[in-house]
């Protein structure tokens, strides 16, 4: 009780004594705002649940979701197989659990491709201005105007079918909004005094961009990434459904729906249950994104 009170006091102190304390305080105060928003909390819990399930997959499941039990094929949901079994007798519950790792893998992969590209192009354009800005933003606008799914399909056609190529194709059409956001942030801080101070200390342009401009872009980029993540997951699942993303026997949810399609009428659980998993996760990201936006940018909330 007392330690909790002192921790709280430390987190809410008027004047932070160290950089570390200030940082913790910001996160804590954001968290207090966030906690008051029940819808955002639901989203947060869904995503937290996804991470926990993915981490504990070996202990939750009874099989690796790949081995075949042809005697048990197409069994309806029961106490033994909670979500039933698929056309090769694999337990659908186990496959959903293992599939959560693939979903997280997609999320991580898209993020590490899209965010650095967007930040680099956006901060350079906003900070440098002039013709650099014009050229980079024209390029961004071109990518912003591209049809995402169709272009991803065409790219997968050359790169070859598979999860990594599908994610790469999605990333290629996804980075542009991040460049726009980073540029807008860079434009507003470009002329502030601390940047001027850094310039006069002789810090190189690269140093200013990396250490002073980029960190300030992170919060709006994070919000946008969370909001876009639902769309990214849906596109990846869509490519999986078309047979262009993850290939069987990978337990990717979209590919599972695609394989289960022919059993829709008689064994409804085979294609419908993975869809519910996709719906829940993408709902989670949408709710979380809305909540984060309200915390970081109270103006745009209503």
């Amino acid at each position: 009780m007392t330690t909790e009170a002192t921790l709280r006091g430390w987190l809410l102190a008027e004047i932070p004594t160290s950089k570390w304390q200030a940082r913790c305080q910001r996160i804590f105060i954001g968290w207090l705002d966030f906690k008051r928003n029940p819808i955002a909390m639901i989203g947060f819990l869904i995503i937290l649940g996804l991470v926990v399930i993915a981490a504990l997959a070996p202990w939750i499941t009874t099989s690796d979701g790949l081995e075949l039990h042809l005697a048990d094929r197409l069994k309806p949901p029961s106490s033994e197989h909670w979500f039933g079994t698929d056309e090769l007798g694999r337990d659908i519950f186990d496959r959903i659990i293992w599939g959560s790792r693939i979903t997280l893998y997609i999320v991580a992969l898209v993020s590490i491709i899209v965010v650095p590209i967007g930040l680099l192009i956006g901060t350079v354009a906003g900070y440098m201005g002039g013709w650099v800005d014009t050229v980079l933003m024209r390029l961004t606008d071109i990518f912003l105007a591209f049809p995402r799914l169709i272009l991803a399909m065409a790219l997968v056609a050359v790169l070859g079918r598979g999860l990594e190529n599908a994610v790469l194709a999605i990333a290629l059409t996804t980075w542009s909004p991040f460049a726009r956001i980073a540029r807008a942030e860079a434009l507003t801080i470009r002329n502030s005094e601390f940047i001027l101070a850094a310039q006069m200390q002789g810090i190189s342009t690269v140093g200013i961009l990396a250490r002073h401009v980029t960190p300030l872009c992170m919060s709006s980029v994070t919000v946008r990434l969370t909001l876009d993540m639902a769309g990214i997951i849906l596109t990846a699942a869509g490519l999986g459904f078309l047979g262009l993303g993850a290939q069987p026997p990978t337990p990717e949810w979209g590919a599972m729906i695609s394989l289960g399609r022919q059993y829709l009428i008689d064994q409804w659980w085979v294609p419908t249950i993975p869809g519910i998993a996709i719906l829940v996760v993408s709902l989670g990201f949408n709710l979380l994104g809305d909540g984060l936006r309200d915390v970081f940018d109270p103006k745009s909330g209503n």
Binding site: G254, I257, P271, T272
Partner: peptide, 15 residues
């Protein structure tokens, strides 16, 4: 509108 945003359209079609 949240469900419309979040549901995979191919799954919705099948259901």
């Amino acid at each position: 509108s949240l469900i419309g945003y979040s549901a995979p359209i191919f799954w919705l079609g099948m259901v």
